[in-house]
């Protein structure tokens, strides 16, 4: 009996050892040069040039915005865009719409050019196209003054005003653009944006006639940004040295 038990135990051990040999496959770690240290290649601060120009064109809207992004692996650029707009629009019949609010857009850009050459070395991205996604938020107050309600037949006239202290508005933006290094870290860029899915805590979208950062709620879904900025970049040699150290 004892002998049978020992033989069975030995058989079981053999089976387990065989199974172990079969299931554990030690794979050589693949060398992917695209995502190696350093993670952060730099960061950029950009000011939007178009907002002040459009203020001059349209009038009645004043504000500006700046964009900040971090360069990760020369490929992914987490981005924050902050701005402020003050809009006063006279709509005719003495109706005025006023709003002033800060707005924030959070998102990420993805560089469309490979950041490495064939030999695996970092490539200097002098000019690169990108696509991106944003979620934007405006924390706004609006004020609609002198809305006339006129009953032409019965001859009555009433004037209403809507002063809502605070509403939240959010929307999504899909971005496509180009950024180019101009000289010594100074960059120029433009981006083309498609905005949509505007949602608000106001009683109805019609109350948020103009949303800071979005524009007219019933306006064009497309917009442009032109930016000038400065990129604080980690030296490419340092990047390569760091890469060598970690090999």
């Amino acid at each position: 009996m004892k002998r049978t038990t020992v033989i069975l135990m030995l058989c079981l051990l053999c089976i387990l050892a065989y199974a172990q040999r079969d299931s554990v496959v030690v794979r050589e770690k693949k060398h992917n040069p695209n995502y190696e240290l350093p993670v952060v290649h730099g960061f950029s601060i950009n000011a939007d040039l178009l907002s002040p120009v459009m203020n001059l064109v349209h009038g009645q809207v004043y504000g500006g915005e700046c964009h900040m992004d971090i360069n990760l692996y020369n490929r992914v650029f987490p981005t924050i865009e902050v701005g402020y707009a003050d809009a006063v629009q006279n709509m005719g019949m003495n109706v005025t719409y006023k709003t002033h609010a800060p707005y924030v857009r959070l998102g990420v850009n993805y560089g469309l050019l490979k950041p490495f050459n064939k030999s695996g070395e970092h490539r200097s991205l002098d000019c690169y196209p990108y696509i991106g996604l944003r979620y934007a938020m405006a924390f706004m107050n609006y004020d609609i003054q002198n809305v006339v309600i006129e009953d032409h037949y019965w001859g009555t006239r009433d004037v209403k005003s809507f002063a809502n202290p605070f509403v939240y508005s959010g929307w999504i933006e899909v971005v496509a653009g180009v950024r180019m290094n101009l000289v010594r870290g100074f960059t120029l860029g433009w981006s083309f944006r498609f905005r949509g899915l505007l949602h608000t805590t106001a009683a109805d979208k019609v109350f948020v006639h103009y949303v800071p950062g979005y524009g007219k709620s019933d306006g064009s879904a497309f917009t442009f940004n032109y930016t000038i900025g400065y990129t604080f970049s980690i030296d490419e040699r340092m990047a390569n040295e760091s890469k060598e150290k970690h090999r």
Binding site: V53, N90, C127, W190, F192, D218, G219, S220
Partner: peptide, 28 residues
């Protein structure tokens, strides 16, 4: 090189400004 970049950038600025100003809806 800078001239080349600016030559790309400036027409896009001008065209988009024209488009954006043309797209403004009247207040009626």
């Amino acid at each position: 090189n800078i001239k080349q970049k600016i030559s790309i950038l400036v027409p896009t600025v001008v065209v988009s400004l024209i488009v954006m100003t043309a797209c403004t809806s009247p207040n009626e």
